[in-house]
Nucleic acid binder design. Structure first.
Lengths: 225, 225
DNA sequence: TGATCCCGTAACAATTTCTTAATGGCTACA
DNA sequence: TGTAGCCATTAAGAAATTGTTACGGGATCA
């Protein structure tokens, strides 16, 4: 895997070099810029995975640079960690802060810096990760969120309906008889009349439309292939 | 930091020893069991961080053991990696597969096994680096000061409420069941009735309004996406 | 040593979800 | 076209789950 690239923007050259040294030791590629303007330019060219940005700088202020980045389509989703000299600058940063970003007060402990960087990166990676999501047809069944989406529409199904749908969808095309469904979705030693499945199927169809779950007469149900 | 403990359940003694050897070399603590029944018993006693479970076993089948674990409040959130002899057993495993689990087909490459274990653990280990401040919706949750802000308003939440809110907010959109919340917010071996979570959720809602934390009936709570 | 706040628990109310059972419809086949 | 078998649909009551409130024990701080 290619190394992650980090752009460091700070007007103190010594600090810049120090950070570079430490980041490289950790296996990151490092880009440097000494002011906001330069930072943006380099970011546009190289598309770094993360930006470490000092807030107080000459030329273009870090704050201003961040605002520019946020309104630039190419750059807006790059995570930024702010470096602030005094902790009361926190307040200033607040307005700019998006989801996974972070800020760090100088002076910086290297280990802390590294671990923050890794944390922010991990968080960003995971957002992209499709861990518990099942995409079938035009549906997106997210077990982590217990939500079914179709485009922008969100359906909040009750638990049994959700799990039944999930079970069938994860076995797309395969027929399961009612008893099997009861065992797998309801649980093994649960005593429930198997017609119950019908009702749940109906409720799912009622909400999502009836073209997802197919009835196989005399056998059971299946999620449409 | 204490070593992570892994429980290995397999009826082949030689394999058990081999795996133990390799895991220990990697710095894990290892527990062993030769059948499902014994496995569950040991799991209950030692609360391992991960379970490596063979599917085909005498006494209590691995499948059965897993189901038992899944329905036991204390054990249900322990990640499980399945060992299966033939790859067509995969299908069966699917039904049991929850969240971050994984399966591996025998024969096992040690490196692969280790890397899977680490991957699953990483996924489960939500003790990620924490951010000082989280901005979600119109809230700003400041872990440094244990204060929640909404615009100019400041809310001083008691510790548990704050930590619960923080935990949920930092996993925006993801549902967590009460047991998980207790483990993550209260601590692993704390014995508290899980309805306690409800009360804390209510208190948070009372202060911040009830549109932040959503209830997913039969499952748990989640911070609104 | 009060006063106050926080935490966990229990009890009951409110709500949602699940299950059942009853009815009617459809299809296949004789 | 009659009949049997299977499924869809509905509504109502049961069951499960959560919301809400109140209370007592502890910790904390003046």
């Amino acid at each position: 895997m290619a190394n992650k690239t980090i752009l460091v923007v700070d007007d103190e050259k010594d600090l810049l070099d120090l950070i570079e040294y430490n980041l490289k030791k950790e296996g990151f590629d490092v880009l440097k810029a000494e002011n906001g303007k330069e930072g943006i330019q380099i970011a546009k060219e190289h598309n770094p995975d993360l930006v470490l940005m000092d807030i107080m700088m000459p030329k273009m202020d870090g704050m201003e640079a961040v605002e520019k980045m946020r309104s630039d389509d190419q750059l807006k989703s790059i995570p930024i960690i702010f470096l602030t000299a005094r902790s009361d600058e926190k307040t200033e940063v607040e307005g700019l802060n998006k989801g996974g970003d972070d800020y760090i007060t100088k002076p910086i402990s290297t280990t802390k810096l590294i671990s923050r960087i890794k944390a922010v990166m991990r968080r960003f990676d995971e957002t992209e990760e499709e861990v518990n999501r099942l995409d079938v047809h035009d549906l997106s069944i997210d077990k982590d969120r217990y939500i079914v989406k179709r485009g922008e529409e969100e359906f909040q199904l009750p638990r049994k309906e959700f799990e039944l749908l999930y079970y069938l969808a994860s076995r797309k095309g395969k027929v399961r008889d009612r008893q099997t469904l009861l065992n797998k979705v309801w649980g093994d030693n649960i005593y429930v009349v198997d017609r119950t499945v019908d009702v749940h199927v109906r409720k799912i169809r009622e909400k999502l439309g009836n073209h997802y779950i197919e009835t196989v007469k005399g056998v059971g149900y299946r999620f449409k292939e």
